[in-house]
Amino acid sequence: MSSSGSPKDNSSMNVDNPYMNELKMHPKELSLKDGKVQVEDVRGPKGEGSLEARMEKMDQEVFMSKKMAERELDIIHKINDELVGEHKKEVGGLWDDIFSLHETTNKLQAQLYDVQNQNS
């Protein structure tokens, strides 16, 4: 169970993988100015102010986003409640109409039965 080299020895890794050095290099940006190719290091976004100030600004943005999402959810719930309430009113009115039609049908059937019994 012995290994051929110690895990701390990186020279064997570079020999095994020649592209490792390229991966470790800082990324470059190529640009063409006045007909000449210029190579520059890629720069990250510039931060304004201290890290604490940027973190505070990001916290404020997250807080505002959460508040907007909460308001949107409240509005969606209110709209949903209104739609459900209107639906219940409409369905309630339809059920009332159905019951009145059922009662009318029963009365008419009773009258027909009475007429049939009178003739016999």
Results as ranks from 00 to 15, higher is better:
Gly49Gln: 06
Lys24Ala: 15
Leu101Arg: 10
Lys57Asn: 14
Lys28Phe: 10
Met1Arg: 05
Val15His: 03
Lys67Gln: 07
Glu52Pro: 00
Met55Asp: 13
Asp74Gln: 02
Ser31Val: 12
His26Ala: 06
Gly44Val: 11
Pro27Phe: 05
Glu82Trp: 02
Thr105Val: 11
Glu40Asn: 08
Gly35Ala: 05
Ser4Trp: 12
Lys36Met: 14
His102Asn: 13
Glu70Cys: 03
Pro27Glu: 02
Pro7Ser: 11
Ile76Arg: 01
Lys36Asp: 12
Ala69Glu: 02
Ile79Asn: 09
Lys78Ala: 09
Glu40His: 03
Lys107Arg: 15
Asn14Thr: 11
Asp16Ser: 10
Gln60Ala: 09
Val115Tyr: 08
Lys67Ile: 07
Lys88Gly: 00
Lys66His: 10
Val42Arg: 13
Ser12Lys: 01
Glu56Ala: 15
Glu48Cys: 13
Ser50Lys: 08
Glu40Cys: 06
Gln109Asp: 14
Tyr19His: 02
Ser3Val: 08
Ile79Tyr: 06
Asn117Met: 11
Glu103Met: 07
Pro7Arg: 07
Asp97Glu: 01
Ile76Met: 01
Asn119Thr: 08
Ser2Lys: 13
Asn80Met: 01
Glu86Ser: 07
Gly93Met: 04
Lys36Ile: 15
Met13Lys: 06
Gly5Trp: 03
Leu51Cys: 14
Lys28Tyr: 08
Glu56Lys: 15
Leu108Lys: 03
Thr105Lys: 12
Pro18Thr: 10
Ser12Arg: 01
Gly92Ile: 00
Gln116Ile: 14
Thr105Asn: 11
Ile79Phe: 03
Ile75Trp: 13
Met68Ala: 14
